[in-house]
């Protein structure tokens, strides 16, 4: 008992001084700017090859060989990179018809994707096929509003994943579109689609307050926005969120001229971006996180956004 108390005392003193040190170190580091580069794609639709030379608008563009070279180049010159995809990496292409997604998942693993979320087309050869192909994945599949507990996807999906890069702790979670009305019911089986806003807010809050993330990223397959405001979208999610910093979108195949910024429920800024489709583009957001000290404890957070002009 005595010994136990002594060792408890000793340990406490040690951890206490460690904490003092880390507090100081954290403050020092926090004063410096910390940068993380988010690379992202969406709606690749099994377009691993460049678009065919058929006189079409996109001929010769895209292709996973070129994307691999580009990503490699960026990784060479940039220290802290995360690579994401916001879903619909499958279908429709003859390659998908033949291989049911195996080359897509293997290629994304080769490219060292960090996390992806799911789109409705990823279920196109059935949920069991999706689960089967994901055995080749070296990346995390994140989604927090599909209940997969009664399906073969149960073990394949996590609600979120965190990544520590220097002083940045990034939490990434995924949000999927309501599959009903988007795809055939027998393809997604016993998947239950839950309210995306409630699930997103709950998960983002866990990332902010339990995982202590200073960057909360949502990979969304809702679509950026719709003429019919009643349809769930990234715009609505951003405006009704509390803890999301960045939404990397999909589904609407939009090429953004610049990321959009919305005010959330705390009057903080949420950045929404999307990178076209078919592997025609690679989106990039360089995020500088700075601050520390008491004044940054206020919840309102403003983002200064600008085009990256230099490499």
């Amino acid at each position: 008992m005595h010994l136990n108390r002594r060792s408890f005392f000793k340990e406490t003193v040690t951890s206490c001084s460690t904490l003092f040190f880390s507090a100081k170190a954290a403050r020092q580091l926090a004063d410096e700017k910390a940068c993380i580069t988010l690379l992202h794609t969406n709606d690749m639709h099994s377009q691993l090859q460049p678009f065919p030379m058929d006189g079409g608008r996109w001929q010769g563009r895209g292709g996973i060989q070129a994307r691999a070279a580009l990503i490699q180049e960026i990784r060479k010159t940039t220290a802290q990179v995360l690579l994401f995809d916001s879903g619909d990496f499958f279908q429709p292409s003859p390659l998908f018809s033949l291989y049911k997604g195996e080359p897509e998942i293997k290629a994304m693993s080769l490219l060292r994707y960090d996390a992806v979320t799911l789109g409705e087309h990823d279920f196109d050869a059935g949920i069991d096929n999706l689960s089967h192909q994901l055995q080749h994945a070296s990346f995390a599949v994140v989604n927090c509003n599909y209940d997969f507990s009664a399906t073969s996807m149960k073990e394949r999906v996590v609600p979120y994943k965190t990544f520590e890069k220097g002083i940045i702790k990034a939490g990434v979670f995924g949000i999927g579109i309501d599959l009903k009305g988007q795809t055939q019911a027998n393809l997604y089986g016993n998947t239950k689609c839950l309210d995306p806003i409630a699930a997103a807010n709950e998960t983002a809050n866990v990332l902010r307050t339990k995982e202590y993330c200073n960057l909360v990223i949502c990979l969304s397959h809702l679509g950026d926005k719709y003429f019919d405001m009643g349809i769930m979208s990234d715009e609505r999610l951003a405006q009704q969120s509390y803890d999301i910093d960045v939404i990397l979108g999909a589904h609407t195949h939009r090429f953004f001229d610049a990321p959009r910024v919305y005010k959330n429920r705390r009057n903080s800024d949420v950045v929404v971006h999307q990178a076209g489709w078919g592997g025609l583009a690679l989106g990039r957001l360089d995020i500088n996180i700075s601050g520390g000290g008491k004044k940054n404890l206020v919840h309102t957070n403003t983002v200064i956004i600008g085009e990256k002009t230099s490499d």
Partner: peptide, 9 residues
């Protein structure tokens, strides 16, 4: 408290 302040795209 460290929060996003600058985004370059």
């Amino acid at each position: 408290a460290k929060r996003t302040v600058q985004v370059q795209y």
